[in-house]
Design a protein around this nucleic acid. Structure first.
Lengths: 341, 341
DNA sequence: CTGTTAGCGCATTCAC
DNA sequence: GTGAATGCGCTAACAG
């Protein structure tokens, strides 16, 4: 007996399907006797209502889609973890989709997500703003279909929806101030996320700090990195380590790589060159010296996005779209000098 | 017009639903003229067939469930990544479930997965064998419902299904041989996965190597670790670093922690104590010294599990259940001494 | 108390 | 060429 359904139970008891349905749902309409024996039979045969049928009936799936650019990036996994915690607790499942930093795949995924398999979407888009304008349509379709969406981290003004972001400008500003207050004067920036608005905001924060402290801004110290190219090579060409005393790096893995390179060229951290990176994951704790990092609280971002989304799905939130800003904080370790007393 | 369905299109054209269905599916039964204009209208309004309805009709969901014990563990994320690559390519989506090392949650998830929302399951169980016997029933239910399952990494003989594992005995054996050949004589084992059969297999491999090389086995050198307790404390109590010259650690994060502890107590790696860990992730490359690790090829495990599962789902594989063994290899770095020439 | 009917959205017979 | 009928598995409104 492969498929156990209401129908098969009904024919076994020679009653109608709806009787069985009611019995199993403990309706008082059904005689206690029949109800009990049906329930017993159902339990013995491991009857479970077919979720797909219920989804069709209820017009919801209790499932949400999560779209991230890269599953191997610890920050996104942390966010996913936060989302998972909340979703589990609130009774939702998660379809995880990874775009692998490809716009084509993002479009394909968005398309799939429009087709009724999820009640809502949480997404960190991969597209730069310039590219986005051409496929913003795919986001609009979600909205057309009344599928709530929450964007996080890599968001865009082109889409109107709930958002959860980090105050990247402020974070970079504070990191830069920390550099300056611990004695750095020539601070370079290594930016491996050039195609996102986040990078731009961080550079602005960096500039703001320089300006406030009366230090000159030198565009040559901003080094864009293409993740597909050799980091070490790019850096040796673009950056004269001799002329700097601090490096602000925009993601964790690059931070670690930069640290290794700096040391392999004979500079000491933080004595010769101090380092601050973004994303406080596992790596930065265990490299040597342990790295001073901007913590973005990925899990917290995920939890917030999840709660906002479900509130929206369940109609518990009918007011305007909000943009929630999660505060970062600087986790000071040994890759920067101690604060002067 | 919130919901665009076949029905709404039909009423717009004042034709029947089945006509629209056929037109959209490009059936030659429909006149070219009508067909074209229906298709045009559908496209303009972003009509997409409702997947839930199709799932019900086709009795499949083109979705699989992946159950892992811990989303923040790089090994499992790597496996998930491998699964995702294959699934994407073969047209399946993934529902990701994390048990957070809790049996209760594993049971709950298995229960959910039985209810028709997925076509198959890939799982690394959290339960130890002793506990498993009491809830093996939940696995059987999947099989009752004809839902194919592939187990990986933490598998069990109690369940008969396709499996993808690493040869843990062999891996630990080779790591131990490497210790011995590079001069170690007193090798300790730190085991943070005591509740899994994998730990036992690895200890066996370790013993086999000792025996083969004529070294004595000392049970006191096997240190079980409870992840919930303080690692450093447990180790200081259970392990006299003075009396050992090598430590084999069964997961990556613990490897790094052990290394930090060893160094903080004034021992040099690998001169005083050599270290080999399991799972070749991001961490081990960047700690100092870079750690010699047993690479389990997580992505490859995931790809294999995914292909086996889909073949099973699609009936392309009707022969007996197989257990695929993925070869590990030792990635030698600086936490072990160089081989003598 | 129990059964009949209808419908969620779709594709697939089979009539006309 | 087009449409009515059927059913996927289930619940709910309505009869009996």
């Amino acid at each position: 007996m492969s498929k156990i359904t209401l129908k098969s139970i009904a024919s076994h008891f020679k009653v109608s399907v709806s009787t069985v349905s009611k019995a199993i749902n403990d309706s008082h309409e059904i005689s206690k006797e029949l109800r009990e024996s049906i329930k017993e039979y159902a339990k013995a045969n491991h009857y479970k209502p077919n979720r797909v049928a219920l989804n069709l009936l209820n017009r919801n799936t209790k499932t949400i889609g999560v779209v991230i650019p890269n599953m191997l990036n610890y920050f996104f996994v942390q966010v996913l973890y936060g989302i998972e915690q909340v979703m589990d607790q609130r009774g939702y499942s998660i379809i995880t989709c990874s775009t692998n930093e490809s716009i084509e795949k993002e479009i394909k995924i968005l398309d799939f997500l429009c087709s009724g398999s999820v009640d809502g979407v949480i997404i960190s888009t991969v597209a730069a703003e310039t590219e986005l304008s051409s496929h913003v349509q795919h986001f609009k379709e979600l909205q057309d279909k009344q599928i709530p969406m929450v964007m996080f981290d890599r968001v865009t003004d082109l889409i109107d929806c709930d958002k959860v972001i980090v105050d990247d400008l402020e974070a970079a500003y504070r990191a830069t101030i920390h550099f300056i207050e611990t004695g750095c004067r020539k601070i370079a920036v290594v930016n491996p996320i050039t195609n996102s608005s986040i990078g731009r905001l961080r550079v602005e924060g960096y500039k703001k700090a320089l300006q406030e402290k009366g230090l000159p801004f030198d565009a040559d110290l901003i080094v864009p990195i293409d993740p597909k190219e050799d980091l070490e090579l790019t850096l040796s060409i673009s950056l004269d380590l001799e002329k700097i005393d601090g490096i602000l790096v925009f993601d964790e893995i690059t931070t670690v790589k930069v640290m290794n390179m700096v040391r392999s060229k004979g500079y000491q951290i933080p004595k010769d060159i101090a380092i601050i990176g973004f994303t406080n994951g596992e790596l930065s704790k265990y490299v040597s010296p342990p790295a001073t990092m901007v913590s973005q609280h990925g899990k917290f971002i995920g939890e917030n996005a999840a709660n906002i989304l479900i509130d929206r799905i369940e109609g518990k939130n009918t007011h305007d779209f909000e943009t929630k800003i999660i505060k970062t904080n600087l986790v000071v370790r040994k890759s920067t000098q101690a604060m002067p007393v």
